[in-house]
């Protein structure tokens, strides 16, 4: 039974991932006064890409051949850490949050190596920027995570979920709001969204994520994109699960509500901001870092 719940939660995140992106996109379109593509469009895109042969560079080594699968696997395995409506995830026996962040870094490693593997000028550019952003986002994320862990006295994701879901209202604190804001900023940076990266453009001056996967096509592209979408969904679910979590069926509906609200919020943020110049991104991440420091201090002040 536990395994079944775990699989359902995992599949939920994986299946929801393109949908979340579609909601963000739809929000943006609606605000712009456009009709926007259907919510199902990302699913159709991925389905179509999965049925296409991929073209691979003659410079590419086995890294390029395996990296898409590895990136996808890492995202799926990381998704198995995240509780949606029950703390019994597939990894509930060892769902350490630090282990989770380092697992995500494994995906980053292969994505950046994929960027460098084809010997293209763009790939290196994307990889260089990606590792920079990843390195600078790390401290903000770690302090925010530490604050949440210290608040709940545990570093296991499932345990945090359990503790929060027993008394959702009492467990709420000011410092957690700041931690979650910091995590939201990190999530925006890590999932390559405005104002850090623009997912809608292929402009060499600005692109980060797209530059790395410029050489990918067909199934490879589908896998990498799906992996990135799952990563984004993981971040959003992680934040959603920390806001007044409820377990059970009601919790499931509540979770969907939260995820889509966060997606709409991100849509709003995207539409009301311009993409930052790359060397402004560190400032953005530094603000996220400060937010998490404030959350830590506020937590100590509250005790």
């Amino acid at each position: 039974m536990e395994v079944l719940i775990g699989i359902v939660q995992l599949l939920l995140i994986v299946i929801l991932a393109p949908g979340v992106n579609a909601v963000i996109h739809k929000t943006k379109c609606l605000i712009r006064g456009q009709k926007g593509p259907s919510i199902l469009q990302p699913y159709r895109d991925i389905y179509k890409l999965l049925n296409k042969r991929s073209v691979i560079s003659d410079t590419a080594s086995w890294i390029s051949r395996f990296a898409p699968y590895i990136i996808f696997s890492v995202s799926v395995v990381a998704a198995a850490f995240i509780p949606v409506f029950s703390s019994k995830t597939l990894f509930h026996f060892s769902s350490d949050v630090i282990g989770f962040t380092y697992l995500m870094a494994l995906g980053t490693l292969f994505l950046t190596l994929y960027g460098l593997d084809q010997g293209s000028a763009f790939g290196g550019l994307g990889s260089s920027r990606e590792v920079t952003i990843a390195a600078l986002a790390e401290p903000a994320m770690m302090i925010a995570i530490f604050t949440v862990c210290i608040m709940n006295g545990t570093s296991s994701i499932s345990e945090i979920f359990t503790k929060l879901s027993v008394h959702p209202l009492q467990a709420f604190s000011v410092s957690s709001v700041f931690s979650l804001l910091a995590l939201l900023m990190v999530a925006i940076a890590e999932s390559a969204r405005i104002p850090v990266d623009n997912p809608e453009t292929h402009l060499e001056l600005t692109m980060v994520h797209e530059a790395m996967i410029l050489e990918a096509s067909g199934r490879d592209l589908a896998l990498i994109e799906l992996g990135s979408l799952i990563k984004q969904a993981i971040f959003i679910s992680f934040i959603a699960s920390a806001i007044f979590p409820i377990s059970g069926l009601l919790g499931f509906i509540w979770y969907l509500l939260k995820v889509f609200s966060i997606a709409i919020l991100i849509g709003f943020i995207e539409i009301s901001n311009a993409k930052l110049r790359f060397f402004r991104v560190p400032d953005f991440l530094a603000v996220a870092f400060t937010l998490s420091v404030i959350s830590l201090i506020v937590h100590y002040l509250e005790v």
Binding site: D283, A286, V287, F289, T290, V293, I294, I297
Partner: peptide, 8 residues
């Protein structure tokens, strides 16, 4: 900004 975090 980092310095401000340290100030806090």
């Amino acid at each position: 900004v980092i310095f401000c975090a340290l100030i806090v």
